[in-house]
Write a protein that binds this DNA or RNA. Structure first.
Lengths: 142, 142
DNA sequence: ATTAACTGATACTAACTTAGTATCAGAATT
DNA sequence: AATTCTGATACTAAGTTAGTATCAGTTAAT
C-alpha cells in the first residue's frame, strides 16, 4: 500500500526546497537539478501548486516560483489532497452491500476514524516543520 | 487517496461473512450472492486467503471455505498486507535525493511514524471486532 | 529589436495496476 | 455418472501513473 505517489512526493520536496530559499524567484530548472526531479514532470506539478495558491510565479527571464504561503501553514495533507484527492479508505464500503443492508455500517465507523486520524497527522506535518527538523539535523552534524 | 482496493474490501467483507457462520463450509457462490461480490473475482481472493492460512477450504460438493483463525486474531492490517503489500508512504522518499544527501532524512521520520500508526490502527480493527460491533448494532435495532 | 530564460496550457505516450472474466483440471458428495 | 465445489492460471479492458513534448506568451538583458 503506497500512500504517496510521485506527484505528491515531488511536490513536497519542491516545497521544502522553496522554503529553504525564501527570497527571490527560483526556476523549475533549478529545483529539478537540485532535487533530481524530471524537469517537465516538475513543471506540471508546480503549475498545479500555483493554481492552488501554494506557490506564486513570475514569468519571463529571471522569473520562477516561490512559496505563496507561510511554510508552517502548508500541511502535507493539503498536498496529498491536491494530487491524490481526499483520503478515503474505500469509496464503495460506505455505499454497497454491508452499508445499504445495515443502516449503521460498522466498517464505516472504524474506517472514518482512521481516515480522520491520518488526515490529522498529515496536516500536522507542515513544510515548515519539515524544514525546521531538517535544519536541526544539519546543525547537529555541524 | 484511496486506501483499500477492491480485493482488500471484498476480502474483509468475505471474512466478516464467514465469521458470522462459524459452523460448516460456505461456498464462494453463497458469499458472492450474499455480499454482491463478483463470483470469479471473489474466488481468486478466497484462494489467496486460503494460501495465506486465513481461510480453510474443502474441495468437492458440500465443500467450501471457513475461517482458519479466530476472528479476533485477523486484523484488517493483515488483509491489506496480503492484497496491497505493507503500508509504505513512498518507496523513494527513503532512498532518493533528500535522504541520500542528508543521512537522517526528516521526512523519513515523520512518515514512518504515520505509517506505524496506520498499521497499528488497522491491526486493532479485527474481523472479530467488526462482527461484534455489527451484532451490537443489530441488537439495538431489535 | 532580438535573444534567452522563464512560465502557462495542454496534448501525448508507455508501462503498470486494477477489476473483472474465463477455462480447465481435479476432488467430494449424491 | 452427474453435480457441486475448489485449485491453478491465463486473459482482458479500462484506468492510473510517471514521464515527455510542444507551442504560446512574458520578462529581462543586450
Amino acid at each position: 500500500m503506497k500512500v504517496l505517489n510521485k506527484e505528491t512526493d515531488y511536490a513536497v520536496r519542491a516545497l521544502i526546497s522553496l522554503g529553504l530559499k525564501p527570497e527571490g524567484w527560483v526556476s523549475a530548472k533549478a529545483i529539478s537539478d537540485e532535487q533530481g526531479i524530471p524537469y517537465q514532470f516538475l513543471r506540471r506539478i508546480l503549475q498545479e501548486l500555483i493554481r492552488q495558491g501554494l506557490v506564486l510565479s513570475k514569468e519571463g527571464a529571471g522569473g520562477g516560483v516561490r512559496l505563496g504561503k507561510n511554510p508552517v501553514e502548508i500541511g502535507v495533507a493539503e498536498v496529498i489532497e491536491i494530487f491524490q484527492g481526499k483520503v478515503q479508505v474505500s469509496e464503495c464500503m460506505f455505499r454497497k452491500q454491508l452499508c445499504s443492508n445495515r443502516a449503521n455500517c460498522v466498517l464505516r465507523h472504524e474506517i472514518m476514524r482512521i481516515e480522520q486520524m491520518v488526515n490529522q497527522e498529515f496536516s500536522k506535518v507542515t513544510i515548515g516543520k519539515l524544514i525546521a527538523d531538517l535544519k536541526a539535523v544539519e546543525a547537529m552534524k555541524g
